[in-house]
Structure formats: C-alpha cells, structure tokens
C-alpha cells in the first residue's frame, strides 16, 4: 500500500498525471475521490476496498471535461476490460490514461464469479485464477421454453424502472439511450414494457458487456440481469469468436464487418 501511495504521489508531483481517480476511506466508508497535486494529503486515506464503484464511468465524466489531460485510475480486472472497450469506442485515448492495476482477492473473485479478476498490469495485490462458473446460465438452460419465459417474465415484472443497470454500467456511454426512446418503449410505466425493455438492453450488451456484474448489484428488484448479458457475451464468443475487453484493436463484429472477414457464421442453432 505504501508503494502504491508513493507511486501515485510521484506521478502527481512529476506532472505525469493531472489527477488520480481512486477511493478514499471516510469514516469507515470507501468513496471515489480524485487525487491531484493539491490534495496529496488525502493519499493517507487511500483504500482498496472490497466494494466496487463504477470507476471508468466516473473517469469518463472527468475525461469529458478534461480531454487533454493525462489521468491515472485505479482499475481491477473488470475496470481494465472497460478501459479497453472505452478506447475501442473512442471514448478515451489510452495514451492519456495511466491505469494502476489491482488484483482481486480470491474471495472477491468468487463473489463476483469473475473469469479474469486481474488487470493487464498488476500494481497491487496477488493475481488469483479466474472463476469458471456458468451455473446461472445452466439453471435457465435446464428449463424448457415455456418455463424460461415464465421465469424471465416473473423477473422482469419486478422491475421498477430505476435505470440503475444502465446508470452504473461502464459500457453505457451513449449520449442518447434507446431505453428512453418513446417510439420503442412506452414512458411512465413501472414495470416498463416487458420483455422489450430488458431485451433491448441485453442485445446492446452483446459486444459491449465486460461482465463486471455491477448491474446486478445495483438492481433493487434483484433481477438476474447479468445472466442475460453473460449469455450474449458467450454467444459472441461462440459464434463470432469475439470477446470484449481483450484487445483494443479488435472491433465489435455486430457493428463492423472487418477487413478480411465476410464470413457467415456457420454455427447457427435453429431450434
């Protein structure tokens, strides 16, 4: 931890970065905070807690106002995947971001069922192996179609339309949100029109979702949203060999055809 603090302090003092987005502990509560060279004393309160805030979402708000500054940010595996996607989508310039990587503990990795609980470069913590767990998908897949629909309609009908899943999402960076398009989804209803509300969002997550699980943590109705997004994520890998959060130079195959591939997916399940 002391090394981490020193590292950040040096970067701020040398002017390598204009700010460092991390978390401080205030009266026992971890909260996001941007360290600058004017607030170095706050580094005493720097913390790497076991709760997560949407760091790259916050980063984007700062970058939008300071597009030319270099900013450091504390990232876990999920945040780092988000950085790759944000760069792919031209929301940030990787050259202007200095990720400080934190590896998650085994407990956190298991709690999050995270397949890659570490960032590209680790500055803090010990790398642990990812968790391979698709029991949530298997649970749904074990049902027949009619039970699945009952299950999901039951889940969706709890939705209070808080938009929390979108608001907390690092990948929901659009200026205008389809979920608020009143030609598609009626406004003013809670629950919203189902299943369209949730399926539109789920489809958008194909080629976007970095499987951080913040959506599910933010859902007051406890809807297993992440399973939906994990499903499309898995499909993108199976059908199109595309996994988000891996390589900045790749492109979403649902948006871009690619220069050398006019290939048609062959593995199409027709039932």
């Amino acid at each position: 931890m002391e090394n981490l603090k020193k590292n950040i302090k040096d970067m701020l003092e040398s002017g390598e970065i204009a700010g460092f987005l991390g978390l401080i502990e205030e009266e026992g509560h971890p909260i996001p905070f941007l360290f600058t060279k004017d607030s170095l004393d706050k580094l005493d309160a720097l913390t790497v807690p076991d709760i997560r805030y949407p760091m790259t979402d916050i980063l984007l708000k700062i970058v939008r106002k300071y597009p030319e500054d270099t900013i450091g940010v504390m990232v876990r595996g999920c945040d780092d995947r988000a950085l790759i996607e944000l760069a792919k989508n031209q929301k940030i310039l990787s050259d202007l971001i200095r990720p400080i990587g934190v590896a998650c503990t085994k407990e956190m990795a298991e709690y999050c069922r995270c397949s890659q609980p570490y960032p590209r470069e680790i500055h803090y913590g010990e790398k642990v192996e990812g968790v391979k767990d698709r029991s949530d998908l298997e649970k749904v897949e074990s049902m027949d179609l009619s039970d699945r629909l009952d299950y999901w309609m039951g889940q969706f009908s709890k939705c209070i339309k808080c938009y929390g899943c979108r608001n907390i999402c690092s990948m929901c960076f659009c200026d205008q949100c389809t979920l608020e398009d009143d030609t598609l989804i009626l406004t003013g209803q809670a629950p919203p029109e189902i299943p369209i509300f949730h399926l539109i969002r789920a489809f958008h997550m194909a080629g976007r979702c970095i499987d951080c699980g913040l959506c599910e943590e933010a859902c007051p109705a406890h809807i297993p949203l992440r399973s939906l997004y994990r499903k499309v994520r898995e499909d993108m890998a199976d059908y199109l060999g595309y996994v988000t959060g891996m390589d900045e130079t790749e492109r979403d195959p649902l948006e871009f055809l690619g220069s050398d591939g006019y290939e048609v997916p062959t593995k199409i399940d027709e039932t």
Binding site: P30, I31, A218
Partner: peptide, 13 residues
Amino acid sequence: LPQKDHPINEGKL
C-alpha cells in the same frame, strides 16, 4: 451514485 455500503439501500436506488 448509490452508496454501496449503506445499510438501507446497499448500492441500489
């Protein structure tokens, strides 16, 4: 943002 470690809303709003 919802406070993640608040005893009432536990990171939801």
